[in-house]
């Protein structure tokens, strides 16, 4: 993209044919990109339109047609009265569960990752490299492997089937990534800062709190988006370690879709799916600018 947009100083001397060729290439590029964008947006379009149609219209009309008569009834049902098995309270209580899991989970794993990253980057100790490698290894352990041991642990701790239990699980499995993020960010901060602060009389936490944390906004945003998306979208832990009443929204969505008998309420399913996905979308829209910036912050020293 950049290469094509770049106008070289010699461009003016090139022949008209070459210039036309470049313009054509540019338009071709835009065309391809637009097609891809449409391709990716198509499912969202279908979901939105379907969720605004009545069941009759879905049965009679085409999949990609716009709704003839817009109805918000499916949304209200998905929100407050759709059945997830025997209960019919809609997604509302489960959205609350997901929030109760995601917010503390994100906060805890981000905070721990920040402290860990600070230690790994600035307070090197014997065996730090080995420990860091092990933490990284933890990032890539498939979750299926830990299901049974984790279930046993939660049982022993008396947290089985509870929201605090799920918070714990997500915090533990988030630490690997959050530590990696923060460590790589803090490594770019010169060690002389820590030395200066030590001589100024500041201790471990004071230096972290007064000097490192105020520098961390970009990486905090990255970590929060990452962790929120991970925890919110998690299904495996949610379905394994919850019970009726503590299930996150992903599990409830599955139940709404799979436990309906008789006629499938596609419009309600679509509305429920959008409701379940909305928070992550929102987080990205609000903080996405910082996400991109934070991901590249380490490489471009400013």
């Amino acid at each position: 993209m950049t290469d094509l947009a770049y106008v070289s100083p010699r461009a003016g001397r090139r022949s008209t044919g070459q210039r036309l060729g470049r313009i054509a290439l540019r338009w071709l590029l835009y065309l391809v990109l637009t097609l891809f964008a449409l391709w990716f947006l198509m499912p969202l379009f279908v979901m939105l339109t379907t969720s605004l149609k009545s069941l009759d219209e879905i049965r009679t009309g085409s999949l990609i047609a716009l709704p003839r008569e817009v109805t918000f009834e499916p949304w209200l049902t998905a929100w407050g009265s759709a059945c997830t098995g025997i209960q019919c309270e809609g997604l509302k209580p489960y959205l609350l569960n997901s929030l109760l899991i995601a917010i503390p989970g994100v906060a805890l794993s981000t905070a721990l990752g920040a402290i860990n990253g600070y230690v790994f980057a600035q307070w090197r100790f014997r065996g730090a490299n080995l420990l860091f490698s092990l933490l990284l290894f933890g990032c890539f352990i498939p979750f299926q492997v830990v299901l049974l041991p984790m279930a046993r642990m939660l049982g022993l701790m008396g947290l089985a089937g509870t929201i605090p239990g799920l918070i714990l699980v997500h915090t533990v499995y988030g630490i690997g990534f959050t530590t990696l993020f923060f460590r790589n960010y803090y490594v770019t901060i010169p060690q002389e800062l820590v030395r200066a602060a030590k001589i100024d009389g500041a201790g471990f936490f004071r230096i972290f709190w007064s000097i490192f944390l105020p520098l961390s906004l970009p990486i905090v945003v990255v970590t929060v988006i990452w962790q929120f998306t991970q925890i919110w979208n998690d299904f495996l832990f949610g379905v394994s370690f919850s019970q009726a009443g503590t299930q996150p929204v992903t599990v409830a969505l599955n139940n709404i879709v799979n436990s309906t008998t008789g006629v499938k309420a596609y419009n309600v399913d679509m509305a429920a799916a959008i409701l379940a996905a909305l928070p992550t979308l929102l987080v990205y829209v609000v903080a996405g600018k910082y996400f991109i910036r934070g991901l590249t912050a380490g490489s471009v020293k400013g």
């Binding site: 010169p190 002389e192 800062l193 030395r195 200066a196 602060a197 030590k198 001589i199 100024d200 009389g201 500041a202 201790g203 007064s210 000097i211």
Partner: peptide, 17 residues
């Protein structure tokens, strides 16, 4: 420890917060 040595230091990179 450095904080109790009654010293102050100026660094090459200035190390300003």
């Amino acid at each position: 420890s450095p904080r109790d040595r009654d010293i102050a230091m100026v660094f090459q990179s200035y190390a300003l917060y």
